[in-house]
Simulated scan of single mutants.
Amino acid sequence: MRAASIKDVANHAGVAVGTVSNVLNYPDRVAERTRARVLDSISELGFVRNDVARQLRAGHSRTIGLIVLDIGNPFFSSISRAAEDAAAKSGNAVVLGNSGHNTGREQHYIDLFEEQRVQGVLISPVSDTSARLAALAARGIKVVLVDSPSSEGQFSSVSIDDVSGGYMATKHLLDIGRRRVAFVAGPQQFHQVTDRLAGAQRAVLEVPGATLEVLQASDLTVLAGREVGDALVERERELLPDGLFCANDLLALGVMQSLTMLHTLRIPQDVALVGYDDIDFAASAVVPLTSIRQPTTLIGQTAIELLAEQLETPDAKPRSVVFKPELIVRASTAQ
């Protein structure tokens, strides 16, 4: 059965096609009795507006593209949920793309969102995509970087001061008397990892006799953390770090599993452990995890606000918002 068209509705209601269009888009322009008659016809015929066609005519849609690094990480799922809630308040929808740390998939989603004529793209980039994103902006699709600063101020961005967070985490380990500190790093192509390491290095330099070892993890996942933990327990006790700062909570939880559930090291007695992100699982871990909290709800909401600013004032200069992280102390570093 053929779907009812806007012309069918007009004929059924005995009005012009333009009147039906006004009822759908500018109802205040139509007399109440006429509007009611058109709405009755829409209901009776089961008419659904062709929003795709409308978007093509307008040149954009009511959707916003969001590309995250890893939707399996609760940090990004929390940001996505906050962005979705904020967008819904203005009648927009967020369409999610998960790059999975893969530049090819990231490029695919950028292309797809451009084809769909989204209002804007929010993105946590895998690598430097500034040229591709600049091409998007030149075509009228606004761009906001999420969990990543804009190095040249080219785009609006919302991020965290990760150098400060890395310093905070490491200083906490030093303040509780740990001197052989190790940083469990994920792939250092991500500025978040290198910034957190830079903060850790700064904290260690302030304490005479303190050392910092970098332990390279293969990824930013629980499994990668377990691999690091398995390698640590093969060491002689005197060669073990007494404080571990992990680049994110997933790594920290993996290390914790290896050290405590599969082996004989105690947290925090033998090794104090700090994560980063303060995901929900941190507080409910077998040893509640000390972590650096990032305001994920604020990050998601602010990304939508920055996009709205760009849409409302196309000539507005890009704006950068940087949040400060917060140390949340739990049993994994308790004295």
Rank of each mutant, 00 (worst) to 15 (best):
80 S>C: 03
56 L>R: 08
73 N>R: 11
115 E>Y: 03
270 D>M: 09
239 L>N: 15
14 G>S: 12
95 V>F: 14
192 Q>D: 04
188 Q>S: 09
205 L>N: 03
109 Y>I: 03
105 R>M: 01
26 Y>D: 12
78 S>A: 13
329 V>M: 02
301 Q>L: 02
123 I>W: 10
121 V>A: 12
248 N>F: 00
107 Q>Y: 09
235 R>H: 13
298 L>C: 05
21 S>L: 06
19 T>W: 06
137 A>I: 01
147 D>S: 14
74 P>R: 04
305 E>R: 07
294 Q>A: 08
287 V>F: 13
188 Q>D: 08
62 R>M: 15
145 L>M: 15
66 L>R: 09
320 S>A: 15
310 Q>F: 02
203 A>W: 03
200 A>V: 10
153 G>M: 00
237 R>V: 10
123 I>Q: 00
75 F>E: 10
169 A>I: 14
253 L>F: 05
13 A>R: 11
268 P>G: 05
133 L>K: 03
267 I>S: 01
227 E>T: 14
221 T>F: 11
123 I>D: 01
196 R>K: 02
176 I>E: 12
284 S>D: 14
108 H>P: 00
93 A>N: 12
279 I>K: 13
278 D>C: 11
66 L>S: 14
105 R>L: 11
264 T>Y: 01
303 A>G: 03
169 A>S: 11
1 M>C: 04
60 H>L: 08
135 A>E: 11
95 V>T: 00
37 R>L: 13
178 R>S: 03
157 S>I: 02
303 A>S: 04
142 K>P: 04
1 M>V: 12
247 A>W: 14
272 A>L: 07
73 N>S: 09
26 Y>T: 01
330 R>Q: 15
276 Y>M: 09
258 S>P: 05
109 Y>P: 07
262 L>D: 15
29 R>Q: 06
112 L>F: 11
249 D>C: 06
8 D>T: 12
260 T>D: 07
157 S>K: 06
255 V>E: 05
163 V>I: 15
103 T>S: 01
320 S>N: 07
150 S>T: 14
152 E>N: 03
208 P>F: 04
328 I>M: 04
284 S>Y: 11
183 F>P: 08
100 G>Q: 10
309 E>V: 02
326 E>K: 05
319 R>G: 06
10 A>R: 10
98 N>Y: 06
82 A>H: 07
287 V>I: 11
